[in-house]
Nucleic acid binder design. Structure first.
Lengths: 357, 357
DNA sequence: CTGAAAGCGCTTACAG
DNA sequence: CTGAAAGCGCTTACAG
């Protein structure tokens, strides 16, 4: 005999009583419960996960899907570690396990998700890196499993999502730059299929338009989460005739390469090019002049996502409001010195400053 | 009726036949199997995870434990993402799920692990970040669950582990530096309780000893995985009277702050201080002079760990050798320019070079 | 090759 | 407050 049956035999009570005692069912004699708890502790008894899930119909675990892909260096790693930490903390408070489900880029992320859902392997899903069109959201909706997405999508509606306030960040950024006299403002957008790339770019276009500035496609550059990609940005911006005087970076870390290449060209960040970073990343915090950017607590984001999910799960819903969570987390401006000044000698071309010949 | 029973009713066969057909049991008529497979596909039937696990006694999933802790910035994030990718790829080939189990720093990592083991939630464990004394290894051994650790430990023996060849790296590093005439050689060791810190430092001491160089505790510095911590290293090394002429860094990324601070002090990396980085990290690859370091494929490491685990699991052991895997992954020297020269004016103090007054 | 039946280890109405 | 029993949805000897 194993498991609960063995414990029952040992204590001379039924398995039902053991189960009740262990699960906090109030209909158990105080002394009985104490005896059971002690015995379980002493013998190291813990209910078998599979049997429990089968009997209860729930797993007490939630999945956090992430796409993993070291090679292509979209490298959102640091981002997700913080978010996961936040989410896991909240889940632990509710005695739920957070299982991170890594999907390799070589696998189909739809099929991958489908397997976990159809096998009822988790009670809820936090779906990261939504795409502009994302079949996974339809899958989640039709399956009926509670879920929340990290990121909006054009697919589906009425579901819970949390996203970053790209629009607010871009509005603040463009307003600052325009107020300082900038008109030739560039932007970098992330490589990859995630929706936030499209959102960031759209916000950029709309805010320029709002100020009556025409969009120049040449000022929209694509970067990966790489220090080096900033160098490419510097080259692109300063090799053009009507050069930019300001740029909003999606990956703040690219500021490192950008600063370096600017200086190699005899230019000074902040003076010859106004720079605003999107999210405050630790790696870029040492730069001087300091990069103006926006603060985001990854832990808070993870905690918010976890709560949005708990609000939908039968087990925990009672403690949360009923309306599906749908909002953009505001990000707080962290003013630096990288965008302080007005455009220097606007219209002067890089080659006049730092001869390339 | 739900699940397999419904499918059975629909097709007019027993649930046993369905189960056999779906699980690749050879004792099934070809046409029957085809019919079942098609029906399952069409109706989206997938066996319930919990029921299957309960009946089979296995979960077909393995856990990869990681400690997660954004705040303290040990930030081994980038490291583990690569390893996880490698491990997950191998597991997927064997139709096993890799579940990443994040343990927050605020939780007790022993209890955390114990829960997953005692509930039989996974069939195997990849344990990361072993400590010099690690009760978790005893727990794993006594529980009988197949496991492999990423990192050695003084606890337990005879179990499977994979580690990095810290000793080889340190031997090569010290040999190179000594061959160039260096005698005052510093080292940085990682903050935290992981065993690799202790191993790295021990290897440092032993290799200096081998060359008859006395150990100076002042040359052993602690760093986190932070660009900035390199600046602190520069200060520490050059503020002392008998300054170091060379340093071996545990976190290559600290080279960024180190280079910067050296230059602020009017010193040149590679010339005034020979520098060797441990693992080749993407973030530091843009530095000039290029940092001499050692290459490690994180994916390969993850794949090796996964295979070491599969070798112990009843389901997959047949395809692997029987002896427990126990070895250090060699790392290949990537010669750079940061440690090229001999000590410059050994004994000259920093203040003579760059007056601080 | 197939089915009836037992069993995996729990939980939970139901009856007392 | 407690127990006997059914049931969760699968798999797998066993018998044919």
């Amino acid at each position: 005999m194993r498991g609960i049956a063995r414990l029952a035999q040992e204590l001379g009570v039924s398995t039902a009583t053991i189960s009740r005692a262990l699960n906090g069912n109030p209909n158990v004699n105080k002394d009985t419960r104490k005896m059971v708890l002690e015995a379980a502790q002493r013998l190291g008894y813990v209910a078998n996960q599979a049997a429990r899930s089968l009997a209860q119909g729930i797993t007490r675990s939630v999945g956090f899907t992430i796409e993993i892909d070291q090679q292509s260096s979209t490298s959102t790693d640091f981002f997700f570690m913080g978010v996961i930490e936040g989410a896991q903390t909240v889940m632990a408070e509710h005695e739920l396990d957070l299982l991170v489900l890594p999907c390799a880029k070589s696998q189909d992320h739809y099929t991958y998700l489908e397997r976990f859902i159809s096998r009822s392997a988790v009670d809820g899903i936090i779906l990261a890196e939504t795409r502009q069109n994302d079949k996974r959201i339809e899958l989640l909706q039709s399956s009926g499993i509670p879920f929340v997405t990290l990121g909006r999508s054009d697919t589906g509606n009425g579901y819970a999502w949390i996203d970053l306030d790209f629009e607010g960040v871009m509005r603040t950024s463009i307003d600052r730059l325009v107020a300082n006299g900038h008109r030739r403002i560039g932007v970098t957008v992330p490589l990859g299929q995630a929706n936030y790339g499209a959102i960031f770019e759209r916000a950029y276009r709309e805010n320029l338009k709002r100020h009556g500035i025409e969009i120049d496609p040449a000022l929209v550059l694509t970067t990966r989460h790489h220090e080096d990609d900033g160098a490419m940005v510097a080259d692109a911006l300063f090799d053009m005739d009507d050069r930019a005087t300001a740029i909003v970076l999606f990956h703040e870390v690219t500021a490192i390469g950008l600063y370096r290449r600017l200086r190699e060209r005899g230019l000074e960040p902040g003076r010859d090019l106004a720079i605003i970073g999107f999210r405050d990343e630790q790696s870029a915090r040492f730069l001087s002049p300091s990069v103006t950017c926006f603060h985001l607590s990854l832990q808070d984001l993870g905690m918010a996502a976890a709560r949005a999910l708990l609000a939908q799960m039968p087990l925990t819903a009672h403690a949360f409001p009923k309306e599906p969570v749908q909002y953009c987390v505001p990000m707080e401006l962290v003013p630096g010195e990288s965008d302080a000044g007005p455009p220097v000698r606007a219209g002067v071309r890089a080659k006049d400053v730092a001869p390339v010949s």
